[in-house]
Design a protein around this nucleic acid. Structure first.
Lengths: 204, 204
DNA sequence: CATAAAAACAGAATTGACTCAATTTTAGAA
DNA sequence: TTCTAAAATTGAGTCAATTCTGTTTTTATG
């Protein structure tokens, strides 16, 4: 028994997310009214709030989809990294950044980031923090891999280094989405320049 | 002619800020209703919006006071830094962090950070970005100073290093204010551990 | 196939940030 | 002092997120 109720629930979830994604893209986060999302998803306003605690959580569900895709793509780099510390970092970070505006506009990112600091204990706030941790962990995994390959010094504190690289990248990304005119290529170049200092310190 | 109008204006500004600071502390940012702030400041709701574009800008004015104090305190360290790269960084960052909860609660910080990413073009959003830049610049100045003292290698890219250190610290601070139970001592220890990697790379 | 309990839904009501048209106050000229 | 234009204030009104309560649908049981 798959259960009528369970099927309807999944269907409504999907309809709400699809409606919201479309309206967020078209009208922006603020511009997409809950009533409009409800109408488009063919449910009532009350039902939306039965599925999501607040408007931010709807955006959160969309962000999670995006970041999980990115994490998946990143696995390839960790498994088979370029044979050079600088290039390896640049490749992984490149995947994160190039993917980032696929589904989400800068405005949507700004809202998502704002909500995650504003309401760190909401479902989305917690999920967002967990995603950040996964990204940090993936960078740390890459460093481990490079150490195993003999490309990074063994005595480096991998956890601390992973945090340092992620935190810097993330902060740069935040500044990037805050300025609509900022270009991806400039962002990557700036991060490369910053990481160069680290690469010099950790490469064998 | 100091002007009656100008004096009243300054007085109202002060009353609004004082009322807001008190209510933000007592009831939290969300809990402090504009009507309550207006009543406490003995002005009307409309007047508040004549002085500040939105609720966030009121908080912004308070944050600016705090950060400017911190910047001032930091100048002393830059002028006369401890004779050891690790200690110098730790001392400056220590000043930033220890000061941070003087006037602002974690909840107020969360709101301030959220607003600055949500509305990067609002008066407060721009002011906040400028404050971040000033802090980055101060860290860069410390590095310059240490280079002049022969404690840091001359061939280090000071600008990139300053950004790296600030971005990491700032991100750690964001995570710190997101968790009410996080302790200042743990935050400082974690940042020290991360900076150790850098210190090893840049110290003469 | 009834039926009662549980779960989910609908949409009207509430709430609080922000706007705006009308009114009041101030500055400065006559 | 009196008058007028500009500046500032006021608070009722608007708008949209969120909450609340009564109704409907689904499930499980006899």
């Amino acid at each position: 028994m798959s259960g009528l109720r369970a099927r309807q629930k999944a269907d409504r979830h999907r309809r709400i997310i699809e409606a919201a994604a479309e309206l967020f893209r078209e009208a922006g986060y603020e511009g997409a009214k809950i009533e409009a999302i409800a109408a488009q998803a063919e449910v009532s306003v009350g039902t939306i709030y039965n599925y999501y605690q607040n408007k931010g959580d709807i955006l959160g569900a969309i962000v999670s989809l995006e970041v999980n895709e990115v994490l998946n793509a990143g696995q390839g780099v960790v498994a088979k990294p370029p044979a050079n510390v600088g290039d390896a970092l640049d490749t992984l970070i490149g995947i994160y950044i190039e993917h980032s505006l696929h589904y989400l506009s800068k405005e949507m990112w700004r809202q998502a980031m704002a909500i995650s600091t504003q309401l760190p204990d909401s479902p989305f706030g917690q999920a967002y923090t967990a995603l950040d941790r996964s990204l940090t962990e993936q960078i740390r995994a890459l460093i481990s891999r490079l150490q195993a390959l003999g490309l990074v010094r063994q005595d480096i504190d991998g956890a601390a280094l992973g945090e340092l690289i992620f935190n810097n990248m993330n902060m740069m990304f935040i500044e990037f989405v805050k300025r609509d005119e900022a270009r991806i290529s400039e962002l990557r170049a700036a991060i490369r320049r910053q990481n160069r200092i680290l690469v010099a310190a950790i490469a064998v």
